[in-house]
């Protein structure tokens, strides 16, 4: 393998760290964005509707 150990460690300590942090931030922002709340609530209730047919 030509990929050096130091290179891998360097990438995981810099890029790897920030991409996971950025991802976590993005997920939290998406989940807690106030205007998304209505959509999520209706999605949570959507499986409880009394129907068993595809929508036309």
């Amino acid at each position: 393998m030509s990929i050096e150990h130091d290179f891998l460690v360097g990438v995981s300590k810099s890029f790897g760290l920030f991409y996971l942090l950025a991802l976590s931030a993005a997920v939290l922002v998406y989940a807690y964005w106030p205007s998304n709340k209505k959509r999520f609530d209706s999605a949570a209730r959507s499986i409880l509707r009394d129907e068993d047919k595809p929508w036309p």
Partner: peptide
Amino acid sequence: LPVRAGRPIFSYRMSII
């Protein structure tokens, strides 16, 4: 679980996270 219990999931946000 939600369907059988007849209740929506406690926190949809938490399920996404």
